[in-house]
Design a protein around this nucleic acid. Sequence first.
DNA 1: CCTACCGATCGGTAGG
DNA 2: CCTACCGATCGGTAGG
Lengths: 195, 195
Amino acid sequence: MTDSVKSRREQILDTASTLFSERGYHATSMRDLAGELGMQGGSLYAHISGKEELLIEIVNRASRQFDTALFSLRDVPLPPGEKLREAMRRHVQVVADNMESATVFFHEWKHLSPSAYARVTGWRDSIDAFYRELITQGIDAGAFRRDLDPKMTAYLVLSAVNWAYTWYRPGGLLGPGDVADTFADMLLRGLEVSA
Amino acid sequence: MTDSVKSRREQILDTASTLFSERGYHATSMRDLAGELGMQGGSLYAHISGKEELLIEIVNRASRQFDTALFSLRDVPLPPGEKLREAMRRHVQVVADNMESATVFFHEWKHLSPSAYARVTGWRDSIDAFYRELITQGIDAGAFRRDLDPKMTAYLVLSAVNWAYTWYRPGGLLGPGDVADTFADMLLRGLEVSA
DNA sequence: CCTACCGATCGGTAGG
DNA sequence: CCTACCGATCGGTAGG
């Protein structure tokens, strides 16, 4: 991306994200995609090798965004509660900034061929591990309840930040940071009035 | 279902749930479906009117299960925390008992034709409303924090119980009730050690 | 980037 | 429930 103008390939990927997220991978034809870009179906193959390459690229970029946002947080010294909050802020930010790719990511990765499929499940495990680690550190530090199950706690946090792809609409009253903060407040302090 | 044996139509719907959840609606051909049932593609049309009828029926049945489980709880007199817990138990139970239909429901409803599509969005709103109502009652009763936003709180609860379709595996250590209880404990009491 | 085309496969139907 | 078939559309390629 040395150009200020997006390359044709980038345009194809952007449009593919939009169409795949709206209609699904299999329900989007290469002719649909080409038409949206003002070209003929066959012309796409001057820029890409095939349909699956588009899906792989979209999914890879999305997972790389999560990686960059989250893993750099590992060595940041913050109290556990603040660290979890910051992770959630970054996580929701990635979802919000990439609503379409995120939707494709969550819905269409099952349609990848075995090797790309395996990479995604491996990636998913690494994200689970990141959050479990964060929870365990918080328990060990005495900040989080000792009776928490790190695995289930990680699932709960991931539910909150991932599910946002189904309802969040950019440009609304709440920005991604507000959403993450609201969720973090509720999760950390609980819904019930303290006894 | 006066028969103890499932009708051919029921078998078709069951198999369609499995295939649609594994491969997606559009990536499942009617010949795939027929083959799984030991028949020819054209033979399906003696039992159903078309492919979309299958999707509509799967989605309708799933939403009816949620309705039955949740709305009957409206008039049950329980403390707000226990009522939310019970709603989550029932919600996760429906997801766990119908992992395949639930997956189809969450992933494929976008592919419905306009009228069926509108019914699903309407249904989704009614589930949102159910949880918001429950939260609001809890706030008014003084059981939940006054600073909660019922809308965001409902999203958080729904995230937890819905996202289970991506990771829950029946037959594991935790039953659906355990999952819901663990989530409810964390949500109600919070992750942090009380100050 | 287009035209023209490939074989394969799609959902669905007719007639039995 | 099967055989045989319909028109439409699919992802992708050849040659320019």
